[in-house]
């Protein structure tokens, strides 16, 4: 399925958001996900179905002041 992930278009085998996380080997990491600008709670990652062209943002904590 064609998605936009972190600003880049990507072809990902994914039915739910959790599949995208697994595709990028991010399961188990502290990640926050947005679909089309809406934050998706972790508990819903396996329920939220994806459709072609969705914009997904995956963010995490980095060092900062």
């Amino acid at each position: 399925m064609k998605l936009t992930v972190n600003g880049k278009s990507a072809e990902v085998e994914a039915a739910v958001l959790g599949d995208v996380l697994r595709h990028y080997e991010l399961e188990g990491k502290m990640v926050v996900a947005e679909i089309d600008g809406n934050i998706i709670d972790k508990s819903a990652w396996e329920q939220i179905g994806l459709t072609e062209g969705m914009r997904i943002e995956l963010v995490h904590f980095v060092g900062g002041g």
Binding site: V5, N6, G7, A10, Y24, V31, V62, G63, G64
Partner: peptide
């Protein structure tokens, strides 16, 4: 901490 997009090429 800061929050940034994950670099998907080098996570």
């Amino acid at each position: 901490f800061a929050i940034r997009r994950i670099n998907l090429e080098e996570p």
